[in-house]
Design a protein around this nucleic acid. Structure first.
Lengths: 115, 115
DNA sequence: TTTGTGTGCTACTGTATTAGTAGCACACTG
DNA sequence: CAGTGTGCTACTAATACAGTAGCACACAAA
């Protein structure tokens, strides 16, 4: 595989390379959001990260890490382990409101119905 | 299939049902973020939405719409077409900073390298 | 040198998810 | 009745992902 996944390059579902579309493609791959979430505060090495992500498949984890490194969001630190780049930290800051929303979502759902 | 995908219920990659994890699972499915993005300002009917999403597969689109409706994020309006619920609009508001980030991402990438 | 531990990562096969195409059922219009 | 537009389903093929095993390298101790 090994697509570029950089803004300006075509991606799945867009030929234009509009940055937001490329980003939505990247974040829409399975485990990507979760991986970033687990890295939001602390760096993890490969195995710890895998463990944090419900023991996801190492082949897929490696694929995602390559994507995210190419995109400049994640980096393999010299001190060992994977961490967010400066850019990646800003992305996560942009995603933090999700947690608030998710909590309200939970309260709403359990308030209105029990399924 | 037809999992619940409600906060509090186990999802892919989490047995706990922690709302943020369920949300990350939901948003991490292919096309989900893109669909929400296309609905962020205007409602679309099924075919218009499909067209906006690069003519994605109608079976998958329907699957996603069911997921999002069950989650209370999207609704099939009486006036026709799919639109965001109140909750869905708040979710999108939480995601809007992505566009700003994506634009900076583009500028950075084209400034630092050409590949 | 050998053995052990820890790292990042790859190879392989099976399964689940998604793509792609065609077309149905219903409603409304003429 | 035909024509158009809606939401949606059925089907097969391609692709992505899961799950397991284990390699290659580095460092440390014996």
């Amino acid at each position: 595989m090994s697509r570029p996944l950089k803004p300006g390059k075509p991606a799945r579902g867009t030929q234009t390379g509009r940055p937001i579309m490329v980003l939505l493609d990247l974040l829409g791959r399975r485990w990507t959001l979760r991986i970033l979430w687990e890295l939001r505060s602390d760096a993890h090495n490969f195995r710890a990260l895998r463990s944090a992500c419900a023991d996801m498949s190492p082949s897929v984890l490696n694929q995602r890490l390559q994507d995210l490194r190419e995109a400049g969001i994640v980096t393999l630190q010299e001190s060992g382990g994977y961490g967010l780049t400066e850019s990646g930290q800003k992305l996560m800051a942009a995603l933090l409101p999700l947690q608030l929303w998710a909590d309200r979502w939970h309260k709403q759902a359990s308030g209105h119905e029990d399924d």
